[in-house]
Design a protein around this nucleic acid. Structure first.
Length: 576
RNA sequence: CGGGGCGUGGCUCAGCUUGGCAAGAGCGCUGCGUUCGGGACGCAGAGGUCGCCGGUUCAAAUCCGGCCGCCCCGACCA
């Protein structure tokens, strides 16, 4: 039960867009008096934003509790030694904020909590009988983002719900994964998002099975590819499609020819106009573990590093140009994997399936300033393994059903779930004793929701020229009571009366008792996006008030005595 | 990190090219009065080391050098 008078509140709304804000959610959050920037990617939440965040957190909490989640609170400060045990002190890189205490001991600010929770449970849980366990927290995280942007959407300090599950076997872990997945759907349904669950890459966290929850929005940073025929949908960095290649002409002879100064795909076209990008074999060399890996894909495609890392089972790193020269015999620009080249004989070569069976292609000769033409993939190239190396794009054939075409749509990642296996439990000795007396590491899953990002995503998805349109479920207040003149006795008394009644009915009410002109009140009520407005104006003398729906702008004049009833009808129809 | 842009009262900006009288506007803020159905009006006020440091000059918001901060575009992620 909440009844807030604006004269006792702090709502610093602004007429003008802030200079440094680009996307609509950022602009509106600043204008609506929700957030203020302290530093790049670091924001203060003012009272209005704080209320909304509580609403979001509570929905998340209820649904996590419903599937047996247990709320905990884990430390933000985490010692170096712990992260070294999983290898992530190195792997996580500069994204983790690091510092030393007065004794010189090193710490990181937690960007995520797999290490802490797994370490904790390694001491506490000894038996399979204790499993399964599902812990979660809603807490501040720190990631020194390469590029913070879009206000709270991608900030360095942010709020996230992270959850971790622990199991005696894989089957149980998968069951938990499905339960969390269902809980996430309930959460995003309740918030009222238009969202999509997609297959995802696992990145730094590791693991094999993973899905993301994407709020559909043109300003989203992620690209989703989905099939127009089956239910397949995936993040672009994970999506698998098939490229339909044109019929090849009969294969020509392999021929080496001089290409002085050619460094790029465009350069080669200038020398031979038939060397279109899709006819060139892009040859890349990366370090995978301690061995080189040669990667081949058509020149018109981007390398998908995440996919390669997943296949290789570890991160890729780049060689310097000098190292490449040593390995291949030529600098980047003239690299290739033609069988007869001595340099390639002892190297692992992986190729993208879109190259399979093709001929009359171009590739480097591993001699600076020379290329081959007439390359037949099967005949001429040394290929040890076929696997997808390219980033798939819209228009490819669906890799799942084979019938449909992949379509694209942008999304904002608000949730991500991972099946982890024993990646963390093994390195942190989180063993349990099984019923046969054997010890083995627990099987884990981890599950994140970007709770502060949800606020921004909701605005991206629901706003108009006048401001935010909150879905009822996360609106900071349900009803905005707007007396045209607080000095008018009748209006003031009626406003106070309404406030009492609605509060008693369990609604959250904001009363605009400020001594400002009506225009200011109307504009603010729309800017901050309260679902329902009750306006008390001159018609009150005839016993009439106005109900205005924020989403549609439609207004109805009704007698005072019907107001409670009408409000109930309206608010239950709209996600009550 | 590479590329681009910006930094002048609380906010949004003008002034800078071509150095010079006194650093401005709108909004916001304070006081008084008039208003009260869509960011009202009048009068009177407060508020700025022109991001920082150095240089050029008789003189720098303006020209030069360095640094810092912030935003946008690309390679990374809730």
């Amino acid at each position: 039960m909440v009844c807030q008078y604006l004269s006792n509140y702090y709502l610093p709304t602004r007429k003008e867009d802030p200079r440094d804000a680009e996307i609509v959610s950022h602009r509106l959050m600043v204008r609506a008096g929700m957030i203020r920037k302290l530093s790049s990617g670091v924001y203060s939440f003012l009272p209005l934003a704080s209320r909304i965040q509580h609403k979001i957190d509570n929905i998340v909490r209820e649904e996590m509790d419903r599937i047996g989640g247990l709320e905990v609170k884990l430390p933000i400060i985490q010692p170096r030694e712990l992260w070294e045990k999983t290898g992530r002190w190195e792997l996580y890189g500069p994204e983790m904020m690091r510092f030393k205490d007065r004794r010189g001991a090193e710490y990181g600010l937690g960007p995520t909590h797999e290490e802490v929770i797994t370490d904790l449970l390694s001491y506490e849980v000894d038996s399979y009988r204790d499993c399964p366990l599902l812990f979660y927290q809603i807490a501040t995280k720190f990631r020194d983002e390469v590029r913070p942007r879009f206000g709270i959407m991608r900030s360095r300090e942010f709020s996230m719900k992270d959850a971790y599950s622990f199991h005696a076997d894989e089957e149980d872990a998968r069951k938990s994964y499905r339960e969390v997945e269902a809980a996430y759907c309930r959460i995003f349904d309740r918030i009222g998002f238009d969202y999509r669950k997609v297959e995802a890459a696992t990145g730094q966290i590791g693991g094999s099975l993973s899905h993301e929850f994407m709020v559909l929005a043109d300003t989203g940073e992620d690209l989703i590819l989905y099939c127009d025929s089956c239910s397949y949908a995936a993040n672009q960095e994970k999506a698998e499609g098939t490229v339909v290649m044109p019929e090849e002409e009969p294969a020509r002879e392999l021929e080496k020819f001089p290409t002085p100064g050619v460094k790029t795909i465009d350069d080669l076209i200038k020398i031979d106009s038939e060397a279109l990008p899709e006819r060139q074999v892009k040859t890349l060399v990366y370090r995978s573990g301690d061995r080189p890996l040669v990667l081949l894909l058509p020149g018109n495609y981007q390398l998908n590093e995440a996919a390669v890392e997943e296949q290789a089972g570890g991160p890729l790193s780049e060689y310097s140009e000098a190292e490449i020269k040593q390995l291949m015999g030529a600098y980047p620009g003239s690299l290739g994997a033609v069988k007869q080249d001595a340099a390639i004989k002892n190297l692992q070569v992986w190729a993208d399936p879109s190259l399979k069976g093709r001929s009359n292609l171009y590739t480097g000769a591993n001699i600076d300033g020379y290329h081959y033409r007439g390359v037949d993939v099967g005949r001429d190239l040394k290929i040890d393994r076929w696997c997808q190396l390219r980033v798939s794009i819209a228009g490819e054939q669906c890799g799942r059903c084979g019938n449909g075409k992949l379509q694209e749509q942008r999304g904002i990642e608000v949730g991500h779930i991972f099946y982890l296996g024993d990646r963390y439990s093994r390195s942190l000795d989180a063993d349990i004793t099984m019923d046969d007396g054997q010890k083995k590491p627990m099987i884990m899953g981890c599950y994140g929701i970007g709770t502060s990002r949800i606020m921004a995503a909701a605005i991206e998805q629901s706003h108009d020229d006048n401001g935010i349109i909150w879905p009822r479920s996360i609106a900071p207040f349900d009803i905005y009571i707007l007396p045209i003149s607080w000095a008018n006795d009748q209006q003031r008394k009626q406003a106070e009366e309404f406030a009492r009644i609605f509060e008693k009915q369990g609604y959250e009410v904001l009363v605009d008792d400020r001594d400002v002109s009506p225009g200011v009140k109307f504009n603010d009520s729309e800017l901050i996006g309260i679902p329902l407005r009750i306006t008390l104006g001159r018609a009150l003398e005839q016993g009439l008030v106005e109900l205005t729906d924020r989403a549609t702008g439609s207004t109805r004049e009704i007698p005072v005595e019907q107001c409670l009833e009408q409000v109930e009808v309206y608010l239950t129809e709209n996600g009550g």
